[in-house]
Computed example of a mutant assay.
Amino acid sequence: MPIVTVQQGPRSVELKRELVRQITDAFVDAYRIPAETVQVWIQEVPTDSWGAAGTLTADKSPRAGRPSRGRAGPRGGGPDCTGGEGRSQGSTPGSRR
Rank of each mutant, 00 (worst) to 15 (best):
W50I: 02
D48S: 07
R63T: 15
G94M: 10
A52Q: 14
T24S: 13
E44W: 13
E36N: 15
L56Y: 10
E44F: 13
E18F: 06
A35R: 14
P79T: 01
L19Q: 09
R66K: 15
E14Y: 08
I33C: 10
P79S: 00
E44Y: 15
K16V: 09
R69Q: 04
W50K: 00
R63V: 13
R75G: 02
L56E: 14
R69V: 09
S12R: 14
P34S: 11
T37Q: 07
R75Q: 05
E85N: 03
I3W: 01
I23A: 08
T37E: 06
G94S: 07
E85M: 02
Q7R: 07
A52D: 06
G51P: 09
R21D: 10
R63M: 14
V28K: 04
V28H: 04
G77R: 09
Q22A: 06
D48H: 13
P79N: 01
L56H: 13
D80P: 00
G94R: 12
E36G: 15
R63F: 11
T47S: 12
R96G: 01
G70T: 04
V40K: 03
T82C: 07
T37G: 06
G77S: 13
E18A: 12
R71S: 08
A52P: 01
R96F: 07
A58P: 07
L19F: 10
Q8A: 11
R17K: 15
E14R: 12
V6S: 03
R97V: 12
R66W: 07
G90K: 14
A64K: 10
T24K: 12
G86Q: 00
Q39A: 14
V6P: 00
Q7V: 07
A52M: 10
A64M: 11
G77A: 14
Q39G: 09
G51N: 10
T92I: 12
T92F: 11
I23G: 01
A35H: 04
L19P: 02
P62I: 05
Q7W: 06
T55P: 00
P10L: 09
R69Y: 05
G70E: 00
A52V: 05
D29W: 07
R69N: 07
V6G: 04
D25C: 03
